[in-house]
Design a protein around this nucleic acid. Sequence first.
DNA 1: TTGAATAACGCAAACGTTTGCACTAGAGTA
DNA 2: TACTCTAGTGCAAACGTTTGCGTTATTCAA
Lengths: 350, 350
Amino acid sequence: MHRKRVTLRDLAEHLNINTSTVSRALSEKSSEMISPDVVKRVRKAAQEMGYKQNAAAYALKVGRTKSIGIIIPDMMNPVFAPIVRGIHSVLNQYGYTAFLAYSENNASAAHSEVEKLISRGVDGIIYAAAFRTDSVVDLCKSHSIPLVLVNRVVDQGNVDTVKVDDSLGIKMAVGHLLDLGHRKIGFIAGPKNISVSYIRLRAFTQTMAEHDLEVEPHRIVEAHSLTEEGGEKAMSVFLGQNPDATAIIASNDLIALGCFTALTQFGYTCPKRISIVGFNNMPYLDWFAIPLTTISIPHFQMGERSAELLLKRIDPESDDHYEEVLLKPKLIIRQSTAPVIRRKKKIAST
Amino acid sequence: MHRKRVTLRDLAEHLNINTSTVSRALSEKSSEMISPDVVKRVRKAAQEMGYKQNAAAYALKVGRTKSIGIIIPDMMNPVFAPIVRGIHSVLNQYGYTAFLAYSENNASAAHSEVEKLISRGVDGIIYAAAFRTDSVVDLCKSHSIPLVLVNRVVDQGNVDTVKVDDSLGIKMAVGHLLDLGHRKIGFIAGPKNISVSYIRLRAFTQTMAEHDLEVEPHRIVEAHSLTEEGGEKAMSVFLGQNPDATAIIASNDLIALGCFTALTQFGYTCPKRISIVGFNNMPYLDWFAIPLTTISIPHFQMGERSAELLLKRIDPESDDHYEEVLLKPKLIIRQSTAPVIRRKKKIAST
DNA sequence: TTGAATAACGCAAACGTTTGCACTAGAGTA
DNA sequence: TACTCTAGTGCAAACGTTTGCGTTATTCAA
């Protein structure tokens, strides 16, 4: 077959015309300054000879690579799969491709990943692993490369974001538990240097306050990370200091899973003894032994919107004011929550 | 900050030396032909002025992009996350980055994704979505770009692969079921144009034969895809024509999940009425209502090995004989399999 | 018939690297 | 002293595109 890649010049020589003409004939925008039949002949020859544009040469010349970078915190967390899918789905429509990197929830790792991506010349970055104060946004700004934040946002303003209404989500969760009769509700928070953890926790105390329920400090414990392991440890200390709690809200589905295992270590059952609600509605939750009641976020749509936003920002003639799209969460009721049982007297367990 | 990217020439002018000297001083291999103190000065200046190599220019010049493409069949299938992670882990050590694409289990989609990747100039491709006869390997061969197949392989030889011993895995599964007393064992196969489906099915009948158990045709039904939905449909027809079966082996964990739902639609229970074993040991299986007995494959290691193999093949001075690494599976016994209950008389269910 | 206007195309520079080759100066040898 | 060698550096071409500008041929108006 073709040992060597066929280039514009190859085409030009074959057709006895100049490479500039070939280039223009192939380009959608500038093909109109070329006579129609030349365009046709060029494109036919390109097809036959298997011409593929050399991305490196294009990038070097025009300064755009038609590629972007995606950074997620954790590849093993299944929530990000549909987000990435959403991103891809719009990227494909515009001839863009994506580098995927992950930060392992580590700020400096994220920073160096972004540096690598910038060095690769990506046209923009979708960042799903932000901390509340994050050097990555300054990094991107100083290199004047477009950046959009998904899900996790950053305290400083002036950056495109697509996030979901976390407060509303928590409000729904609390409302649901209150409806079931729960009053002694605990909260397993995530690290408060991550926006979602911070906001969800704040929304929890606020919503409780709105219902005239003050939440005492021991009702809240912070997990060191948004993972199963973090959730398990935090839940252990929570159960130690809250023997009377009947429900807990986890900042995260993964944390909720950790709560489950801590629960069984204490010999408690869910939802009989304690109700649990998570956040994110990660895939395959329906299959779980205790299907987790959780707050669903529109993963795929989040991916789509962020990609659209980024592409818009990459466009040279875009206006320069930042956008912030806010998506609505949804309460998914499963079996991990149940009405609170009021027991006047102690009853021997069977 | 730096509005414009600093280039080799910027450095050269700043130091009053030639760009070629700067280039050589920065390069690890050719810096030895430059006097040590010049090297030091250049590197210091590069550091201070924030020089980053222009990847596009490098790629255009040397013909290598230091990037590869990964193609997986389905982003929502959690098995691929650890594989991708394994790939990344070795890629990072060598300054490589990866484009991630997925084929949705569609041959032509895979083909066009590969074409896009090649056009992007990737140095190699890791292909986890192969069909038994697949145009992608010819495509790569004709462009003489390195390719390694993971998990799913291809009938035609002469291509680097890393796979797991599927036959051994099935043998383990069958052995496990036989130990539990099962004899009437069914098999929900995947599409037979995919190597793993084909091999696993063949291994099933062979292993059964080795135990003097002939498997009748109605004991095998083929799902149209390696998904939950495919498994569910196939399992429905299976149950319709096999009311006496006590165990089934699914070609895939996802298919096994589909089997579960079909099972409950028929009012059957697992593992009481029927045992199920899957394949792949996808993440979070431990959490399931019926924890699935399955064959575990070394995902992460598969990723690592395939990346190593690809990098070796990309290296210009590598020998040119193809390698085939074969990894060992492991039987993971959970609760979806149980001893067969022999009932002489019909007993009313309680 | 002459002029300008337009359409179609060619020329050549440029993007930022790498690298073969030429060049210089100083060291070593005879 | 005159010679060759070599270490260190500069020159310039090349990778494959895109694009501003110059050139030619054709059309249209006067």
